[in-house]
């Protein structure tokens, strides 16, 4: 039998089983926790233990593996967990949740749309952040609907920024209406002027 140089003849350690991983996700050693998180990739019965891990885990390597495993599961429970994380105080965890929800466009889109109507402006901003990279055709209509009823300047700011990329000339009346409503807000005036200019240029297929 041909052996490659340095090939070990020692037996390979058995891979961790799903059952083991469910316990070792709370192991004191980070390497064991990470391996457990990887082992639970796509395991539908592991949502609760992975979610619990993500509520407490500090090591980025373990968190990354757990997030990937949760995305691979992609159930309603997973989407609900990441929406819960959007409401948290930690910026890095919110960003992790935004990323995860963006990887699950089919599963998360309806729930993200409902977040656009939440009473808390920060949640509406988070919802627009998720929509930023959601490749769903309705996103453009959701943003237009949001802008037509929105009063908070920061929500309008992020929605206009997103509309710059996916808007059409059909959005121009909405943008003009907001510009008139926020005549004393220099940032919104700037953002709307830029959005209108960009949408017109994109419509004419001219470089801005």
């Amino acid at each position: 039998m041909l052996l490659k140089k340095n090939q070990s003849k020692a037996p390979v350690a058995d891979a961790m089983t799903v059952e083991d991983a469910m316990e070792k996700i709370a192991h004191p050693e980070a390497a064991q926790r990470r391996e457990a998180a990887v082992t639970l990739h796509g395991e539908e019965g592991a949502v609760d233990v992975l979610a619990d891990c993500l509520r407490h885990e500090e090591r980025q390597s373990v968190r990354g593996a757990a997030v990937s495993s949760m995305i691979a599961i992609g159930s309603d429970d997973v989407v609900d967990f990441f929406i819960e994380q959007l409401r948290g105080d930690e910026a890095d965890r919110r960003n992790e949740a935004v990323y995860a929800l963006q990887q699950l466009p089919e599963q998360s889109s309806q729930k993200i749309q409902s977040l656009l109507s939440e009473s808390e402006p920060d949640m509406r901003i988070m919802a627009v952040d998720v929509i930023r990279l959601l490749t769903i055709p309705e996103a453009h209509l959701w943003l237009r609907a949001l802008l037509s009823r929105e009063d908070h300047p920061n929500v309008i700011g992020v929605a206009v920024d997103r509309l710059c990329e996916i808007g059409s000339v059909d959005d121009l009346p909405t943008l003009e209406e907001i510009k008139a409503r926020f005549v004393h807000d220099p940032y919104i005036q700037f953002a709307i002027d830029h959005a209108i200019k960009r949408i017109i240029c994109l419509d004419a297929e001219e470089p801005i």
Binding site: G157, V158, V160, D161, C164, Y187, F190, A191, H194, A195
Partner: peptide, 12 residues
């Protein structure tokens, strides 16, 4: 991460 915000701050 918002292009419009960067452009606005750049202008100022």
């Amino acid at each position: 991460d918002a292009t419009t915000v960067r452009m606005y701050h750049r202008s100022l």
